[in-house]
Design a protein around this nucleic acid. Structure first.
Lengths: 340, 340
DNA sequence: TACAAACACGAAAACGTTTGCGAAAAATCA
DNA sequence: TGATTTTTCGCAAACGTTTTCGTGTTTGTA
């Protein structure tokens, strides 16, 4: 790569000092009109652009925000990134993305890389392993130095920082109520292991809805999928039983779509024999048949909010109170819960 | 945010010079064992990490690679990023992601931001608008300065730089042949406007397969979807005609899934009345019923290859020849083209 | 003519790091 | 003891930029 042109180069060219060039390019009145135009023409011709590293070092700010997510090939997370990127860009920031790949180690090392001065702040959603281990030292160290940090979706409740989450309890509550209104009596829940925060919150909303409708909670209808094992086989057990459920709430799109697939293989009519509703994060729900009803998660908004919180914190000196933004999910009713 | 600890701080603490501290932390033999351990203990305690901006400025390299993609909420592109990120990380690089949002202007400004010294090289897939306008000045300017650049998927054939693409012609050829082997006589192609390079390449493969099977090409069976209009309505015209096709090749997953949906609405039996095959980029194909056969695109591999080419170029001094890596797609036969 | 004001520019510090080289102090040798 | 080597450390430059302050020259005014 050819070396980029610098102020020094230009200065030498005209036999003036570096400061003169710098001022000329900024249209300072200190520099004569003549010198100014000469220098600007030259700089323009050689396409001079100030080296951003030098600027960042001098200004002690990078205008970059770091994002660490568990996966990127994931409709929800990529939508969040889109929201972050859009808002950040409008505010003059760039986005640096790292992927923890659900690994604690990778998350720690990502944080290490990003907080060496290359970003002004961090937006993070926890890796599954971190949630499992409940080891949050790397975040605590950050907060000790008042490093700007926003957690989203998979958060740490106890940590004192900005957070943005979905009202998972409310979403599951709405969805479950919807199933009950349809006449469901035996509703199965397909969820994750308890350490996944969103999973346990949605379970909470599910139970809450049952209680408020005076339906007894049957623990044998709650299935916790182990992501390390085969999803399909585990979900099969939900339906291939003697007394199968008449409705299913699944905590994500894949579980819902898989349940639908298995139901059809079993010859069940959805939604007549079995109503299904999931939490959407992708496009699958629209294209299955019947299309799947779901709780919409507003990932874009979530990203935007996270970026907004972070940039506010970066740009505000003095101490801001920590905020927790809660986004209300909406029910998108499609054919898997619609009888007509 | 609390100011981070620097060499200067440590130096002052012990009344030594900055260079002594720097050398001590690097275990230089120039510094006495005693001073070394004192300084290292102190630095360790205060969690000293060298400011990466300063290092980047001094070393004239950032170990960051920039990526510009048209969208991120897109299974294929996010998969490519995953591939890039993984390989880059192994090589000690971080990834900065910008989204052009299919806009020429945004692409240009993204390049402007990233090439101010914040990245060592760039991996780009063109925005739709750029392809439409065929304005490549921003890339030409980069190459004039030998700036490391890798184009992938949506590339500029004439540009002298590294490229990695899928064998789109071959993929469409395979898929079309597959349909013909199934007995299809009237195969419709649902593709994009011609300026989208992958669309026209896949069209080429489609035609090639027809020719090699002595099937006449019927232009009325080639449908070019305008992304700015309603996709569903446009695809409807493929099937709601007097003499409908008996097979469809769609150049992406959404088109294929939409065609399947419409076919079922029309009461057609897929695959008996109508066979459908698409190009996969997501999970939809697996969950439709019948599941959709498709051409698999190997996005992860593509990303890895792109990162490999770029990093080779960054790290090799002297001139390397430009490479064009072509990835062969595979046919994944599912139920939409399987009669049994 | 003398003095002030306006103008045009340069020097230097600062951001945080690395590193070659010089130099003082300590240790070794004759 | 005097000379030489080794140990231990500091100086300064370099990366590229911005900005404050200083300085020399020119112009204007009394």
């Amino acid at each position: 790569m050819k070396p980029r042109i610098t102020l020094k180069n230009i200065a030498k060219e005209f036999g003036v000092s570096i400061s003169t060039v710098s001022k000329a390019l900024k249209d300072s009145h200190e520099i004569s009109e003549e010198t100014r135009s000469k220098i600007k023409a030259f700089a323009d011709y050689y396409n001079y652009k100030p080296n951003s590293l030098a600027l960042q070092l001098r200004n002690q700010r990078t205008s970059v925000i770091g994002v660490i997510i568990p996966e990127i090939v994931h409709h929800f997370f990529s939508t969040v990134i889109e929201g972050i990127e859009k808002y950040a860009n409008e505010k003059g920031y760039s986005v640096m993305v790292c992927i923890s790949n659900e690994s604690f180690q990778k998350e720690v090392s990502n944080i290490g890389v990003l907080t060496n001065g290359s970003v002004d702040g961090l937006i993070v959603s926890l890796s599954r392993e971190t949630q499992e281990l409940q080891n949050y030292h790397h975040f605590e160290a950050l907060l000790k130095d008042d490093f700007p940090l926003v957690l989203f979706d998979r958060i740490i409740e106890e940590l004192e920082c900005d957070k943005v989450i979905i009202d998972d309890v409310g979403g599951a509550f709405k969805a479950t109520n919807h199933l009950i209104e349809l006449g469901a009596k035996r509703i199965a829940l397909i969820t994750t292991k308890d350490y996944v925060s969103v999973g346990s919150l949605r379970k909470e909303g599910f139970k809450k809805a049952l209680k408020s409708n005076n339906i007894e909670i049957d623990d044998s209808l709650i299935f916790k999928i182990d992501e390390k094992l085969n999803t399909y086989e585990q979900i099969k057990k939900v339906l291939f039983v003697t007394n199968p459920p008449d409705a299913i709430l699944a905590v994500n799109e894949i579980y819902a779509a898989t349940a639908l697939k298995i139901a059809k293989e079993r010859g069940l009519n959805v939604p007549k024999d079995l109503a299904i509703i999931g939490f959407t994060s992708g496009l699958i729900s629209e294209f299955t048949s019947p299309s799947l009803s779901s709780v919409e998660q507003h990932g874009f908004l979530m990203g935007k909010q996270a970026a907004e919180l972070l940039i506010d914190r970066i740009e505000t000196e003095g101490n801001l109170e920590f905020q927790k933004v809660v986004i209300s999910p909406d029910l998108k009713v499609r054919n898997s819960t619609q009888i007509n």
